[in-house]
Amino acid sequence: MSYILGVVLLACTTALTCALPGVFVVLRKHSMIVDGISHAVLPGIIIGFAIVGDLDSPVLILGAAVTGLLVVLGNEWLTETGLLAGDAPQGLIFPSLFAVGILMVSMDFQHVHLDTHVALVGDMNLAAVIPLTVGGVNIGPEYLYVMLGLLLLNAGFIAVFSRALKITTFARQFAEILGIRTRLLNTAFMFLVSVTVVAAFNAVGAILVISLLVVPAATAQLISTRLSVMFALTAAIAIIGALAGFWIAYVLDTGTSAAMAVFYGVLFVAVAVAERTATRLRRNRHQDVKSEETSATLVRSASVR
């Protein structure tokens, strides 16, 4: 497999892997918690890297994901103390964990040489450098297969728990009456999100991963009224964004993840404006028809008299 094809496939797979759980993240209103997770996993990744020495290792991915879970559980604890107002609990824990990570990076913790720039936005091309060879044949970047595995895991989790996830998202109290362990399910789901964030770190870094997770699903939400449609649209938008982001980065010689983030944002605005315009036109036409009907009835009733 050629290197460039490997990078393109990696971009698409990473986008898709992040976007699928993103649907429930958006619907459950957890976007900013995921932002916290994506910052908080940095110290976990660095400690893991110092121990394992490989960013793609499953041990590192699971271990660092636990740091991300600290944000979820910490947020729940702070909210339950009742001492803090509004969304402040979500903004209190992750900066400290991120600060620890940045301190480690800048002090060359255990001689882990990680560029702060890469820590923020990753490097898709660098992530695709190491190839996987089977029987002497290069079958694409090794990292691609890590992401493919995670894609299967995410799709599998969503498929198996789709009913429970749906009920807990749209009718939480009803779910509790049914005996669904909402809290356990939420923690498991957020752990999976955390795993996804860590796995994608190599390619898209700590800050822009939230774009891949949230924006395709939010764009799909604008124009869908059914969950199945939203999933299909999310997947399509994720892939389009990955291809467009790769192409923009290639032409401008710049970072893939940043280009993807900007493209997703612009696409969201375009879809939002188009959707509003379409709604307005439809409403106007509806009103026109209505007013014509009323005038017709008036004319008719006048002629009867």
Binding site: S31, M32, L208, V215, A218, M260, G265
Partner: peptide, 15 residues
């Protein structure tokens, strides 16, 4: 909405 705004602006900043 905050996540969308933040990543779009920050992505542009990184470019």
């Amino acid at each position: 909405a905050m996540a969308i705004s933040m990543t779009t602006f920050f992505g542009f900043g990184m470019l």
